[in-house]
Simulated assay, not measured.
Amino acid sequence: MTVDVDLALVGGGGAASLVLAALGRAGVGGLRVAVVDPVHKRGQDRTWAFWGRPGTFLDPLLSASWDEVDVVTPARRRVLSLDPLRYAMLRSAPLYDLAAGAEKRLDATRLTAPAGALADDGARVTVAGPDGTPLVRAAWVLDSRPRRPDRPGVTSWLQHFRGWWLEADRPTFDPGRAVLMDFRTPQPARGISFGYVLPVSDRFALVEYTEFSPARLDGDAYDAALRDYAALLGLDLAALRVREVEDGVIPMTDGPFTPRPSARVVRLGTAGGATRPSTGYTFSAMARQADEIARALAAGRPPVPAPAYPGRHLWMDAVQLRALDRGLVDGVAFFDRLFDRNPADRVLRFLDGATTWREDLTLMASSPLLPMTRAAAEVVNENRSARRRPSH
């Protein structure tokens, strides 16, 4: 039997959980909601790190937050005050629990099944299973399933990482300050690597190795990199326990995504453009768009959020990615210079798409001019060539 609803969430991960939580906060009443996902997300399956102003609904859910962070290069350790922002860590279990409570209050229908094609006739959307059997008919569908860009970008990199949750029997970590980026790790031939440390307490912390580069590492390379980084931090792994392991891969590409593929289908998460091409950060944009969707539904408007980032920021990201990919700039020096010549909150607000034109010009002026100009010209030429190629 096909379920008939006002709103269907296809995919039940972070993006859908934020929407459910936002609907709960907005007090949307009488809305028939369905969630379609083969897995009902629970527990600690991932960690989000993000920055923003304190005083939001997320505060009670956070595992930790920091007013200062370190950015470390081989030459120096820079301590950055984030005021008026803060850097925060959110583990998945509290968000999933909050979403589950909202889902119950909304009396939502949950279909623990994979979704296939979406058929939009302009008035309703039919969500079918993989075999074509109709599962749900909805006035609107929010689809957060991962997907590739509509076409390859000029540059296609990945943010890929592995982290160890380390537990100690005695005070080992400084819970008052996180390490945002530590570039003392060996740098890949093509790309950027860094470690970071997110301490929950003086005895428990997430220690992670991350690369921005074209491809994932092979075999045990992540573990080897983490062992080396732990040694660099002076950590005695023999005296620590690895309680959990987190892996992830996030696209960093200027390839275009279509956030609204049809009249009544809206894509969320990476597929909806929420991932910042220059860093892979996604969470803050997902949270903003979830709030916009809930406010729109509460006001009786279509649940269509604004673009996650201004077009000029996406252009700047494309140029940055091209410059890094072609080796026109040194990645470590680029980020070191960015934080050296700008207040930390300006850099972080830029990465959230919240800076003004004037601030963007200041950020551009702090980048090496000639290499970035060359990268910009290459992006323009590549995009022109792509538009001239016949589609298949």
Rank of each mutant, 00 (worst) to 15 (best):
D6F: 01
G14S: 15
A15E: 00
A15D: 06
L23V: 03
G29W: 01
L31R: 02
A34D: 07
V35Q: 03
V39Y: 12
K41S: 12
D45S: 13
D45Q: 13
D45E: 15
A49Q: 08
W51N: 07
W51S: 11
A64D: 02
S65H: 14
D67P: 05
R76W: 07
R77N: 02
L82R: 00
P94K: 08
D97V: 11
E103P: 01
T112H: 12
A115M: 06
A119T: 15
G122W: 05
G122V: 03
G122S: 11
V125K: 02
A128E: 06
A128I: 06
G129R: 05
G129Y: 01
P130I: 07
D131T: 12
D131L: 12
V136Y: 04
V141W: 02
D150N: 13
V154R: 05
S156D: 15
L158A: 07
A168W: 05
A178P: 02
D182H: 06
F183M: 13
T185L: 12
S193P: 03
Y196H: 10
R203M: 02
R203N: 06
V207I: 04
R216W: 09
D218Q: 15
G219E: 05
D223S: 13
A224F: 01
R227K: 12
V242G: 06
E244A: 13
P251D: 03
R264C: 10
V266E: 03
V266G: 09
T270K: 05
A271D: 00
A274T: 00
T275P: 03
S278T: 11
Y281P: 08
P305L: 04
P305V: 08
W315M: 10
R322G: 04
R326L: 14
R326K: 13
F334E: 01
F334I: 02
F339R: 08
V347T: 09
F350L: 15
A354Y: 02
L361M: 14
S366Y: 00
R374C: 09
A376V: 10
N383S: 14
R384M: 13
R387H: 12
R387A: 15
